[in-house]
């Protein structure tokens, strides 16, 4: 190979030299490492910044008893402001709870149909539809609650106002269902085909295979899907702001208006002075939301990871 020898490095000692590409590789490695840990930095950053803004309240006006056990959220009362989030928690919980009652059966049913029954084109189409459903922005869902569900509920149930637990619960359920469906379908897909084949070889019918073999095998993944749905409902802001009626209230029926934790921040942050107790109290709600969703996501992740290992 005579003409190639020009490209061949002259001596053995020479080839061991670090060249530009060697240094570029090191630099890139450093850059992508910092990008990689950015997610950790951001999560810590979120916690630090919202804690910093809420700290004043935590040290001065905050009492555990009032904050978590008082149903009165009256931060703008000039004489005796009260910062109780019990009613807000009740609002969030009631709406999320109803949403799960709506979403769990439908999303699991849809996941089973898409994952176990549907084939070919039908299956592809349904998956695309579910994905598109998940893409509808929450403010649009809120608007739907406000302008379509509201009159519908007034008509159907003969109540004066249709912005209440029922409205927000259904809206939130419809919002959470597509995400839960696709995660649940992933969980079903993760069950190896040999389980199904083994059960079918024993003469089990399709639905027996699903109920006795597939669902038990996928139960952790399905639980993870439900938990992520709960986290989603818990953290949803615009839709619950627009569809709940936004009244501080511990609900006694489906037709009571309520107010959610997230919606309270969204509605009031713009009207408070930076650094005021009210402003800081809203950030304290933010800390609470952050911790709760963190725990929900952590649990869901541990559960889902559990099946992958098993």
């Amino acid at each position: 190979m005579p003409e190639a020898s020009s490209t061949k490095l002259a001596s053995t000692a020479d080839f061991d030299r670090r060249d530009l590409d060697w240094y570029i590789d090191k630099v890139v490695q450093l850059i992508v490492f910092f990008a990689g840990i950015s997610a950790i930095i951001f999560i810590i950053g979120i916690f630090i910044f919202i804690t910093m803004e809420g700290l004043g309240f935590l040290f001065e006006d905050f009492t555990f008893k009032e904050f978590f056990l008082s149903p009165f959220w009256e931060p703008s009362d000039e004489d005796a402001p009260e910062y109780g989030i019990l009613a807000l928690i009740a609002g969030t919980a009631s709406v999320t709870g109803l949403a799960m009652i709506v979403a769990i059966p439908f999303s699991l049913g849809a996941a089973i149909y898409i994952g176990e029954f549907a084939t070919g084109k039908v299956r592809e189409t349904l998956k695309v539809l579910v994905e598109l459903l998940a893409a509808i922005p929450s403010v649009v869902w809120g608007f739907i609650g406000l302008s379509i569900m509201n009159p519908l509920i007034i008509d159907l149930f003969d109540v004066p106002v249709g912005l209440n637990v029922l409205n927000a619960g259904i809206i939130l359920g419809l919002m959470a269902a597509p995400i839960m469906t696709s995660i649940a379908e992933d969980a079903l897909k993760a069950v190896p085909d040999r389980y199904r084949e083994a059960a079918e070889a024993l003469g089990a019918t399709r639905w027996q295979v699903i109920f006795k073999t597939v669902l038990p095998a996928a139960k952790n993944g399905l639980l993870g899907a439900v938990l992520l749905g709960v986290g989603r409902g818990f953290g949803e802001t615009m839709a619950v702001l627009m569809a709940t009626g936004h009244a501080v209230n511990i609900p006694g029926s489906l037709f009571d208006p309520v107010r959610a934790l997230t919606a309270t921040i969204a509605a009031e942050l713009g009207e408070t002075a930076v650094g005021s107790p009210h402003y800081q109290a809203l950030f304290t709600i933010g800390i609470f939301l952050f911790i709760i969703t963190f725990l929900i996501n952590l649990t869901a992740d541990l559960i889902v990871r559990g099946i992958r290992k098993g």
């Binding site: 999560i43 919202i50 953290g235 921040i265 996501n297």
Partner: peptide, 19 residues
């Protein structure tokens, strides 16, 4: 951290953005 970044409520992201 990535899972949590996706799971933190959008209003908490808003608070972070403000702070």
């Amino acid at each position: 951290a990535i899972i949590n970044l996706a799971g933190v409520p959008s209003i908490v992201h808003a608070l972070f953005g403000v702070g």
